[in-house]
């Protein structure tokens, strides 16, 4: 049956201003992701990525504009929208004193998975991420890469339509980062999941990915990576950023 919802993430004309701030943290942000799409949200620190992330996840209330997750409006159908998204935060959110399995069971219960279904899904995700032998280890005993994998496995337990990653690879070594980025790309393709990948690391973006470049709360460039490179006649993203920086871009903190 064809998917009745064309966009799994639909952000439209989003504006946000923090109380007492002179300037808007986000101004007129729009982006859409279809099933199987990998959308990289790139920008230097302070560009507004985390604010956008908070609005999409409903952790902050919308002031202007709309956010829809697989057809469910985050403001009016918050619980439905939440049930359709999986989130991996920059800051680790696992319980260090509990085992891998206990952490996953807790999350499955929070998302309403019954005991039998939870057992099945946990076994599937542990196998997918090669974590089955570590299921009884406490999170404290795992290295950073394994902890990240547990967090991604956890985000997938309730079979979300949209996966959100907020600088999920920060602090990991290059090979582990690469593994995780590869894995998430495959996941999007195989499971027809939409992925919003927030990062300031250019090497995590593939040529076929859609990119939104965020700076000072505005989307200053949007399109597939290839399109953007062609339009701006840049050899690679590194050069593209250099061009944008030359146009007084605040790409100062983007890690190349």
């Amino acid at each position: 049956m064809p998917d009745p919802v064309p966009y799994l993430l639909d952000v439209s004309a989003l504006c946000y201003r923090y109380r007492g701030a002179d300037q808007a943290a986000l101004a007129d942000i729009s982006l859409r992701i279809e099933g199987g799409g990998f959308h990289a949200l790139l920008g230097p620190n302070g560009a507004g990525k985390t604010t956008l992330f908070s609005l999409i996840t409903g952790l902050s209330g919308l002031q202007q504009g709309s956010v829809s997750i697989a057809g469910a409006d985050i403001a009016r159908q918050r619980l439905t929208a939440l049930s359709r998204m999986g989130v991996v935060f920059q800051q680790p959110t696992l319980d260090l004193d509990l085992t891998v399995e206990q952490n996953l069971r807790y999350f499955a219960a929070l998302n309403g998975l019954g005991a039998k279904q939870a057992r099945r899904r946990i076994a599937e995700e542990l196998a997918r991420f090669d974590l089955t032998p570590r299921r009884r280890e406490r999170i404290r005993q795992l290295n950073g890469g394994h902890r990240r994998r547990v967090e991604i496995a956890r985000a997938l337990l309730h079979e979300p339509r949209l996966l959100l990653f907020d600088e999920a690879t920060v602090g990991l070594d290059v090979p582990t980062r690469q593994q995780i980025v590869d894995h998430v790309h495959r996941l999007a393709e195989e499971q027809n999941i939409a992925v919003l990948w927030t990062t300031h690391l250019i090497d995590e973006v593939y040529p076929g990915d859609t990119v939104s470049l965020l700076d000072r709360g505005r989307v200053v460039a949007q399109g597939t990576c290839r399109q953007l490179l062609q339009e701006r006649k840049a050899a690679d993203l590194k050069q593209l950023f250099a061009q944008l920086a030359a146009r007084d871009y605040a790409a100062r903190e983007v890690a190349l």
Partner: peptide, 14 residues
């Protein structure tokens, strides 16, 4: 402070 409160707050339950 550790962020796990956000996991609780993102559960699809009031």
């Amino acid at each position: 402070e550790l962020g796990s409160m956000r996991i609780l707050m993102l559960a699809p339950t009031p």
